[in-house]
């Protein structure tokens, strides 16, 4: 399907261990269309993190093909992958991963630095996105001045700053209490409403319930793939 943001065919990944090759991912086929909101679930060791790393172009597959926005990722070198991550993807991590010495505004603007955007535009876009996530008044503060939930909202603003087609969120609520988690999930829902494709990795069923589609991993394979009816 031409409109697919993500299309993987027979994707596999093995890691060398003392006991020989360990297959973390054993032939996965999946297509994610533009505008989808999909949760990837599974117990630890199921291969979902490996899959996320491959989707995020942070790692390269052992076998199979991965098309991101129509581009065959296997043909790209490390720097081209960095550019692809910068332009097409937004990452949201469990541990927020803000740079501690930089103001929130500079944190949000950092992907634009690597994109070669000029300073005035960087400031304006970062400020606008901080306003969007409701933290405009903290623009000049350092990350350690705000709460975990607020930090995650800053991280989402950073993921959005280069107008990506896809957001990859790896356990985004794993370090947050249930009330704050609800706020973050509401924000993801709004972004999806704006047309951004969201891939969410989680092991919590109530978080996954916010997604429109759930894919379950077990032992390196997809064992179920169904629509939830959420937000429909």
């Amino acid at each position: 399907m031409a409109g697919d943001v993500i299309r993987v065919l027979g994707l596999g990944k093995s890691y060398p261990t003392a006991a020989g090759e360990f297959p973390a991912l054993r032939g996965v086929d999946l297509a994610i269309a533009a505008g989808e909101y999909i949760a990837i679930m599974g117990p630890s060791g199921s291969g979902k993190s490996t899959f996320m790393n491959l989707l995020g172009c942070l790692d390269t597959p052992s076998v199979g093909e991965y098309f991101l926005a129509g581009e065959n990722v296997a043909t790209l070198d490390k720097d081209a992958l960095a550019v692809l991550r910068n332009r097409t993807l937004g990452f949201v991590f469990q541990g927020f991963n803000l740079l501690p010495r930089m103001s929130l505004q500079d944190n949000v603007a950092l992907p634009l630095v690597y994109a070669g955007v000029d300073k005035a535009t960087r400031r304006a876009r970062a400020r606008a996105l901080l306003e969007r996530v409701g933290l405009g008044q903290y623009a000049e503060s350092l990350p350690n001045r705000i709460s975990g939930g607020q930090q995650q909202r800053v991280a989402i603003a950073r993921a959005l700053v280069n107008a990506p087609r896809l957001i990859l969120a790896d356990e985004p609520t794993g370090n947050l209490d249930s009330h704050t988690s609800e706020e973050i999930m509401r924000l993801f829902g709004e972004l999806n409403g704006d047309g951004i494709t969201i891939v969410l990795v989680t092991h919590e069923p109530d978080i996954a319930a916010h997604a429109k589609r759930q894919v379950r991993f077990l032992d390196g394979r997809i064992v179920s793939d169904h629509l939830t009816g959420a937000g429909a």
């Binding site: 995020g56 942070l58 960095a82 550019v83 910068n86 740079l99 950092l110 690597y114």
Partner: peptide, 12 residues
């Protein structure tokens, strides 16, 4: 790692 994830190339 964070910088690389958000798009820093090796030369950056």
């Amino acid at each position: 790692g964070i910088r690389m994830a958000i798009g820093a190339r090796r030369k950056d």
